[in-house]
Design a protein around this nucleic acid. Sequence first.
DNA 1: TTTAGTGCAAAGTTTTTGCATGTCC
DNA 2: GGACATGCAAAAACTTTGCACTAAA
Lengths: 160, 160
Amino acid sequence: MNRPSARIATKPVRVEDALRRAGLKRTPQRLEIYRLLAETGDHPDIETIYRNTRRTMTAISLDTVYRTLDLFRELGLVTTVRPRPDRVRFDANTDPHHHFICEACGSISDFEDRTLDDWPVPEAARALGFVRSARVDILGLCPNCVRAKKTAKKQSMRRD
Amino acid sequence: MNRPSARIATKPVRVEDALRRAGLKRTPQRLEIYRLLAETGDHPDIETIYRNTRRTMTAISLDTVYRTLDLFRELGLVTTVRPRPDRVRFDANTDPHHHFICEACGSISDFEDRTLDDWPVPEAARALGFVRSARVDILGLCPNCVRAKKTAKKQSMRRD
DNA sequence: TTTAGTGCAAAGTTTTTGCATGTCC
DNA sequence: GGACATGCAAAAACTTTGCACTAAA
């Protein structure tokens, strides 16, 4: 059911190719949304992507952004991440990489780790179905939030 | 900032202790919701949890379920998983484990892998903040969906 | 020309909030 | 008794859909 040595890694693709191959149209909205996403190292949510596209395409509608991102996801052009109870966020970086997610503020940073990418998908997981890809989320606190927490603690100690 | 050998693993806790320690109240709703979640090997969404609690507590309200699960998450009693663009799902299994997520039907299965749990959190991730835990999601197709796909393919070939 | 894609507005879902009432410690 | 929790209902936030129009191929 699985190729015997599936590994924790994914490989890059490009929009126009992907669209053509799927017999889909190459519309300005799609290109613009993808461009924005590919340019930023950030992991914006739908609302943000919408706002940003509006800077250059005044007439684009929010539902087109929804539909486009859904499409991109089906095509494997973007992946999604969820921090805490937050909105879905998108990521056009399809190079093998993983995420550090701050549990306090929800910020997401990429990191790479070859050893992890090359780690064979565990047999226990391969037994559960056909493996396509894998992702590792490291959860914790970003430096800003660590700092904020320390401050809060000091203040509460002062109160006691 | 991090303990030098943080590993990809988490450790169990219990409700009543956690509530007491946090100075929170031990209400029937909270206990019942937790019990249900701890009993099932499943990864139910809010709606399902709500329906199930209603079997024994006819008067519980949906927003209490929301608030309770949010609280549990803050306390580290449950974790959340998201399949595709689907609702959040909850998991009271705080033993070290990871998820196989079917990209087609959204079903989620647990699997364990010691080697993965013992894998040291990569330096690149530790550099990004204080590491609390890590999770690995393996994405793919469950056997049912693999079968469904094969059938669909055969039919489309017949049509051609 | 044909068919996919878009914008708009409306409907559907999911989640959060305010407030009065009830209940755990 | 007092703070914390709950239920209810209403509001807010987020997402999806139907349809007529537009624009790629």
